[in-house]
Write a protein that binds this DNA or RNA. Structure first.
Ligand SMILES: O=c1ccn([C@H]2C[C@H](O)[C@@H](COP(=O)(O)OP(=O)(O)OP(=O)(O)O)O2)c(=O)[nH]1
Ligand SMILES: [Mg+2]
Length: 770
DNA sequence: TGGCAGGCGTT
DNA sequence: AACGCC
DNA sequence: GCCA
């Protein structure tokens, strides 16, 4: 759709304009559409509006109009990487459709291409046997690995739901350079994914990890940001250790372990300067302070007005989220006595608060829990304080433990029957309500929203996807409110706001801030992590590994790290990819693709999807769907792969392929493009879709991500499965809710029909902004 | 307490 | 299989 | 994080 013609015509002019133009800074906000659009265009063409040097995590998109109603529960997820962070802004108004974008419903063209996943369920690596904590008292069963007898067993890597397992396979004897060593880490918890990884490493190498200090500790490995003074203070406070015995080696992970790996044995100069942690063992005390932190927040704007109805409705907003989660937390199981005073059940059993009834009970509970918790964790980084203590790990995705949810009880394979009665409340799915992402201007909860978005951003960065999703949903809910929510009682009855968020909302309303958030800003590691996570192709796992290795800048990576092809490109064009693209520029890219393709075969149709179709003011990338009325997918693929891409590469419009379909069943081409004369690379996605799959492809590629997940979850609850190719029924699922049967195709051609079958009201792309 | 979408491409 | 991305 |  789109106005190709006009675009076409003006494309050259735009490009020319671009080149000459100057960047106006701009932070787009909403603003009206039509007119603003030209401005945007210019801006866009010129160059990216603002190029954040460092990934700012902000993302957001907002649109206006709103309506609201209903609830939104349902579960959904989110997460995305920070890069996607910046969210799109929406022009307000209706003007949207003119924007161009695909037809909303009709079967259009497109095919699909899709991309990766998201939260990933990392898996559980495996769960280990039950628990065996070492402790002397245990009658160890047969033979237990040494590290389990002597030390503690860390949690498994990845987000396994189950807090504990971790069955580490040791390296062969010959490679156990740390055999029989007993290592104590500080920070000594294993909540942090990165630290957990290191702990696992030690064990792999034959060592043992102890959560609590013991006299037989041989090595103390300290986080890079901790100095000697802090370590001593910690040991004294917690264990009464006033001095670290000389035979104990105190080092930082990076250098020492790097040495271990290089030498393939323990360093002979364990006290070498390089291994020395800040504050120095020898030099004696030095106080160092660490980082200061950068205020990362800011928040955003949004606002606008538009009162809505209020009440329990909830609107949410989305915000980006990132991918996975990182650490999880668990309770610190303290070994013997140890410190943690017993934390109370912080997560008080909240009698269903949601029902609106009792509202006052649990609070006191939460408070006491919070206090208990604080005590228990004062020595830990704040980051984990609240989370872990009280609740159970939120993270975890994936594990597939079994089963699904209640209703699908029959664990085994079961074919979902079409009509399950209300096993679930469809109205609670967010895809059932309009979500334009706009909040009322002057929303009384603006400050609360900002703070919660910051928190969400933080968790997104930490890759705690589920928690991130929860924050996104809560913000969406708040955006729909017309009254200032100041108490827990008020907040908790809103959808997607539970006890914990309600408490935070109250704190924000009362203090205008959130301690938890402040604590978050103090961690310098966040900055590094954020920097690395902003690289295309780099996720939490890789970012942590690099940080552990001591890398702190992109230059460090370029010089020392082993980078994949895409990561190299991601670093080279770090700023380019982090910059959002104006709608106008998106149109130009789309037009170039369209022209080139139609030159090959005039029947091809190219439609711009993604945030563009949703009317976003700025887009993170260019998402195009390519289809053709009669051609087969093979014809489309061959044409694109063998002719279109080569041609556009030759013209220097396309720069590189980042993820290109290899098989014959592939349907996507992901790469980078740049307008003629511009050195700014943009991410561009081409989805190849057979004509008859346009409906499903439209839904998928229009998104947003949360909307898709919501609809898909609903489909699965109805015994169906929705993906970018179509809606299938009679899907059999097993334990993890895992798909066992593909199911039979029900509909794929019409977007409208798919929604209809699912009982989801069709709504314009603009309102699919969950 | 388990679930939280579904599918690919790269390494 | 792990990781990252759509 | 929230929810059933
Ligand atoms: O985890 C995801 C990510 C994306 N999508 C779909 C919805 C989304 O709208 C579309 C395009 O993805 P993209 O990452 O480009 O998101 P966007 O909605 O276009 O936002 P942005 O402006 O950041 O590109 O693919 C999903 O289904 N799941
Ligand atoms: Mg996009």
């Amino acid at each position: 759709m789109t106005n190709n013609r006009d675009l076409d015509k003006s494309i050259t002019a735009k490009i020319a304009f671009f080149k000459g133009a100057i960047i106006l800074d701009v932070e787009d906000d909403e603003t009206g559409f039509p007119d603003a659009r030209l401005i945007d265009a210019e801006r866009a063409l010129v160059d990216p509006p603002v190029k954040p040097k460092r990934p700012k995590a902000t993302k957001r998109e907002s649109s206006d109009s709103d309506r609201l109603r209903d609830r939104q529960n349902e579960f959904e997820i989110v997460t995305t990487k920070m890069r996607k962070a910046a969210r799109e802004d929406f022009p307000k108004i209706v003007g949207i459709k003119r924007v161009s974008s695909a037809p909303d419903m009709a079967p259009k063209k497109v095919q699909k291409v899709d991309k990766g996943k998201q939260p990933a369920s990392r898996a559980p690596k495996k769960t280990t046997p039950p628990k065996l904590q070492h402790s002397s008292t245990l009658p160890t069963p047969p033979k237990m690995e040494w590290y389990k007898e002597v030390g503690d067993v860390p949690r498994a890597l990845g987000r396994s739901k189950i807090p504990k397992p971790a069955n580490i396979k040791l390296r062969p004897e010959s490679q156990q350079y740390m055999k029989n060593l007993i290592v104590y880490f500080y920070q000594n918890n294993d909540y942090d994914e990165g630290r957990r990884l290191r702990i696992h490493k030690v064990i792999e190498l034959g060592g043992a990890w102890v959560k609590e200090w013991r006299d037989d500790v041989t090595h103390v490995i300290v986080d890079e940001r901790i100095n000697y003074t802090e370590l001593l203070k910690h040991l004294e406070e917690r264990y009464g250790v006033k001095q670290i015995p000389a035979h104990i080696i105190v080092t930082n992970w990076d250098w020492y372990m790097g040495r271990v790996f290089d030498l393939k044995c323990l360093p002979l100069e364990p006290h070498g300067p390089l291994y020395r942690i800040r504050g120095a063992p020898d030099p004696q005390v030095s106080t160092t302070n660490l980082h200061s932190s950068s205020p990362q927040l800011e928040s955003q704007d949004s606002l606008q007005l538009k009162p809505s109805k209020g009440k329990a409705a909830a609107r949410e907003e989305r915000s980006p989220s990132r991918i996975e989660d990182s650490f999880r937390q668990e309770a610190p199981k303290s070994r013997k006595r140890t410190i943690s005073p017993d934390r109370q059940p912080s997560r008080s059993p909240r009698p269903d608060s949601r029902s609106g009834l009792s509202s006052g009970h649990k609070y006191s509970d939460a408070l006491s829990a919070a206090i208990g918790q604080a005590k228990a964790f004062e020595h830990l980084p704040l980051d984990f304080e609240e989370d872990e203590a009280s609740s159970r790990p939120s993270t975890s995705e994936g594990t597939g433990t079994d089963t699904e949810s209640e209703e699908e009880r029959p664990r085994k394979i079961r074919k979902t029957s079409p009509m399950q009665f209300s096993k679930f409340d469809q109205s609670k799915f967010q895809c059932m309500t309009k979500n334009d992402g706009t909040s009322t201007s002057g929303n009384p909860n603006q400050r609360t929203i900002e703070v919660l978005q910051e928190m969400g951003k933080y968790y997104d960065m930490m890759q705690d996807s589920w928690r991130t999703v929860a924050y996104r949903k809560a913000v969406t809910t708040l955006k729909k409110q017309t009254e200032w929510i100041t108490t827990k009682e008020q907040a908790i009855r809103l959808p997607c706001i539970g006890e914990r968020l309600a408490a935070k909302i109250e704190e924000i309303a009362m203090t205008n801030g959130l301690r938890r958030l402040e604590s978050t800003k103090t961690d310098s590691l966040d900055e590094n992590l954020r920097l690395f996570l902003g690289i295309y192709g780099v996720g939490l796992t890789q970012a942590h590994k690099w940080i552990q290795q001591g890398y702190r800048t992109l230059d460090d990576l370029k010089e020392k790290a082993h980078l994949t092809k895409n990561q190299n490109i991601g670093i080279e064009h770090y700023d380019d990819f982090a910059t959002r693209i104006s709608r106008i520029e998106v149109e130009v890219h789309g037009q170039i693709v369209r022209k080139a393709l139609q030159k090959i075969d005039p029947l091809f149709e190219v439609t711009i999807m993604g945030s563009y179709r949703r009317g976003a003011k700025t887009c993170g990338d260019i998402d195009c769907v390519i289809t053709i009325p009669k051609g087969s997918i093979d014809y489309i693929r061959n044409t694109v792969v063998d002719e279109l891409v080569p041609q556009l590469m030759k013209e220097d419009f396309l720069k590189v392929g980042l993820a290109t379909t290899s098989k014959d069943n592939g349907s996507k081409w992901h790469g980078a493009s740049a307008l003629p004369g511009s050195s700014v690379w943009r991410r561009i996605d081409l989805l190849l879709v057979p004509w008859n799959e346009m409906g499903a492809a439209l839904i998928y590629f229009t998104g947003n991500d949360l909307f898709n997940r919501s609809v898909r979850l609903l489909a699965s609850k109805k015994g169906m499965r929705l993906n970018q190719r179509g809606l299938f029924k009679d899907v059999m699922r097993g334990p993890n809710r895992a798909k066992i049967t593909e199911g039979t195709l029900v509909e794929s051609r019409s977007e409208k029909r798919i929604f209809e079958i699912l009982g989801v009201p069709w709504r314009p792309p603009h309102d699919r902004q969950i």
